[in-house]
Design a protein around this nucleic acid. Structure first.
Lengths: 199, 199, 199, 199
DNA sequence: TCCTAACCGAGACGGTACGTCCAGTCTTCGT
DNA sequence: ACGAAGACTGGACGTACCGTCTCGGTTAGGA
């Protein structure tokens, strides 16, 4: 998985791997990321500590993998944003949904945990961008590119920048709890961002 | 200060308080936030551990106060953004400076440490917003209000939103290391944001 | 008192002295000697810690004084053993009473505490012998001398040794809990000891 | 050993056990029992504190085991008192030797430490009696029984009581430092005790 | 089919830091 | 000015985890 190095993967016990990842996710929800310990994960998973240290280089890597497993599409299909042809409505729907997800207590703890790891561990951050952020970002860019081609955005619009201006304020507000994540905020954000890049 | 609760402040030793804050700041720079320990702070400050536990509720609170002391203006004066009359040039200068500050290795470690704390501790986050973010944000809003009054921004521009769209992408990119923090990025950001709110 | 050195006794607060001694005795009974702390004594006595440190050199000295106060005769009179003329009966009565006192839970804890101090602190041991043991020992010797003069003991009987042989086995058995402290034991002890020193 | 409880002894490191016991004995000699700390023992033994807490319930238990190790006969043979056929001379020799041992500075500190523990900890006292005192006491009783069978003591002599009357005064005097432990005292003790139990 | 090497659960190990308690000293404040 | 109150430095406490290291037991492949 993701951040793990690989000493003869063939003998690895799938049973243990899954138990560890599940225990990790459960414990983050129960005691929070700050109080998560390798020892507790091992105990909960019914696994020796060494089995964790054998396959993951750090607590952060275990946490990361446990959340990665969550976000992976079992059907192998990619992520796709809705496309009704109306970029304004589509983006508002997506941002409202994202805001709602941030408020879901089942997601909040793990995602904060993940961010804590990523902020302080550049290596993990790279894996995160590659495995978790990129698929989502590419879906966003695909949708925006479609809008640009349909003439709803300026022909020379910097779509990367547009994506940043749409999502960063939302994420920031959630991370620092600096304001409410309601529909009005999502809508205003979309309106302003599209205004900046309209044809 | 700030995050400390207050059991009869009058008897408190100013000497110890300053030594603790200084030691904390030094140690974050030397060993990083993750390896910062209360014991090391106490030893470096020449202080009993109890003196730290007496006045701060958590390691995060100490770290916070130590950084707060850094950001406080000793002259009591407020923070002010440059105002040449040209909002576009002024904002580009400020965002370029902010980007440069993020890249300064002397600032990077402490600010990442601070963010780690804030993400996971709502109480600390509230104090942070009040003591550290608010003065800066108000300075930004003052400058933007000036521009709006000068007719450089739409009369109905939502300045709060504008501020978010200017700064959040910068902060986000730095926090997650998702791209370079160069002048081009700062300039593009200002251009796009102003485009969204021009008269 | 006793083990205390004497910095200008005249100014000393009798009120505090008594409160400290009382608190000490109470606490030994409540939490045991091992868990007795100066801080607890000061708090219970409503006294600053300094007031204790000013007048006593060690915790042992406070404990000692607190118990000394217990054993002192307020009327100033000396201790006297019963004298019915029958040395055998008198000694048996005294040893039975001593054994009973050792079994009294109200006495047991403090006396064990006292012994613990004395065993490890020669200075305290000297004060103990002088202030607490001597009066009792002299009473014993007086009674034995009477018996010797009455011809109930050998004329050349070593009364010090006799006293030791009477009391040491009792004390020892109590201290190490090596056997029951019943009347039979007391009686057998007296019988044997008197046998060794009869005329 | 002795005072230790037993969580799966099989995995226990003999190396650490011995190092801890040795360090304890050394430190009692160097800094005294009162200033003996678990932390110092661990450091001296090159051992984690947890390894001590894992196998011993209290500081007293460690001290106890460390002294028990001292007193154990590696050859597995029992202790035997000298038997020249002359009970008077034999006892005097043994009591003189005991007195000398009490005066040996190398023994004094540990044995006082041991007594301090035993006085205040009934559980430890029981183990002490079983493991350390009983073998010695039985050797004494064997020798006395021999003397009784040889007609040197009364046929109905209470040998337990005799043993107490021989040793308790000696131990008492040493513990409380209430008098010199010289040969004269030993001899007088034997003379008086035997007088009480002669045929 | 058996051998053997890697994996496994378990948990002891040497350590580091925790947060608490108390010792003994020093400082402040109210009476 | 004295003494209660209590903050101070210092250091040990007993606990929690770290990451490493055996220990037997199990399991999967190659001989």
């Amino acid at each position: 998985m993701a951040a793990s190095t690989t000493p003869d993967r063939s003998r690895r016990s799938e049973r243990s791997r899954v138990a560890i990842l599940t225990a990790t996710r459960d414990l983050i929800g129960e005691v929070g990321y700050a109080k998560l310990t390798i020892e507790a994960i091992a105990a909960r998973a019914g696994v020796g500590k060494q089995t964790i240290y054998r396959w993951w280089p750090s607590k952060g890597a275990v946490v990361f993998d446990s959340l990665l497993a969550l976000s992976e599409r079992p059907d192998g299909g990619g992520i796709e944003l809705p496309d009704t042809g109306d970029i304004d409505a589509d983006l508002k729907a997506v941002l409202r949904a994202t805001a709602a997800e941030f408020s879901d207590p089942g997601f909040e703890a793990p995602i904060r945990a993940l961010n804590t790891e990523i902020i302080n561990d550049p290596e993990l951050a790279a894996v995160y961008r590659e495995k978790m952020e990129r698929p989502i970002r590419e879906a966003k860019l695909r949708r925006l590119r479609g809008a640009r081609e349909a003439g709803q955005l300026a022909a020379d619009a910097d779509l990367d920048l547009l994506a940043d201006m749409l999502y960063a304020p939302l994420t920031q507000r959630w991370l620092l709890r600096s304001g409410p994540l309601d529909d009005d905020f999502a809508d205003a954000l979309v309106d302003a961002a599209l205004r900046a890049f309209r044809p």
